[in-house]
Amino acid sequence: MLYLEDLKVGDHFVSRDYEMTLEEIQQFAHLYDPQIFHTDVQQAAQHPVFQGIAASGWHTAAVTMRLWTECFPVAHGLIGSESSLRWPRPTRPGDLIHVDVEITAISPSKTKLDRGLVSYVTQALNQHGEVLLISTTKIVVFRRDAQVA
């Protein structure tokens, strides 16, 4: 597990690959984002923007979160403070997604001495190195000697 004192600006973390299947894209969409460009192959092919099935951006974000938790093992969990997301291109069936996380800032708290804020940029990339999601995020990270209840 990683603590505040283990991290430095410029540190990189890279996840394993995760394959997005058509079935999973459609299942997620039916549950959480039921739009035709996520659910119907024939209608999605005619869509003026996507021109084919595309995973919901929220599905890509959820997979990114899963991969973050595996490759960026912060003690006491990834406790979000702030985030901004962009989806520069759609995630397609068969895409192999991996995430690349880079620490951009570390700010120890001046009032809560057991923790700090860590800022990082995450890119979710497909097998061609194309960026599917990019986020800037701040999380709370505890010091090693913190007393967390």
Rank of each mutant, 00 (worst) to 15 (best):
T69S: 12
V74A: 00
W58V: 08
G52M: 09
W68V: 08
H76A: 11
E82Y: 13
L78D: 01
R66A: 05
F72N: 01
S109A: 10
S56M: 02
P93W: 08
G129N: 09
R66D: 02
V121D: 05
S107M: 14
V63Q: 03
M65S: 14
S109K: 07
G129Q: 09
F50V: 14
D95I: 03
G116M: 05
A62P: 00
S107L: 15
G57M: 05
V118W: 01
S56G: 05
S135P: 01
M65Q: 12
I134E: 13
G129P: 05
T111I: 12
G116L: 04
G52H: 10
L132N: 05
V99L: 07
V74S: 00
L133D: 03
V49A: 12
V118S: 04
A105Y: 00
I134M: 10
A105M: 00
S84N: 13
C71N: 13
G129A: 07
T91P: 09
H59Q: 11
V63G: 02
A54L: 08
L96K: 15
L113H: 15
S109I: 06
V121P: 02
S83G: 13
S81W: 08
I134R: 14
S119G: 13
H59M: 04
W87R: 04
P88C: 09
P108Y: 04
P93A: 10
W68A: 04
Q127F: 07
E70S: 14
S84E: 15
S83V: 13
R86Q: 15
R86P: 03
F50S: 14
I97V: 07
F50T: 14
L117T: 15
V49R: 08
S135F: 04
G57N: 02
L85H: 10
S109L: 09
H128C: 11
I79F: 01
S83Y: 11
L85V: 06
P93C: 13
R86S: 15
L125R: 12
S135M: 08
H59L: 07
G94V: 00
G57S: 03
T64N: 14
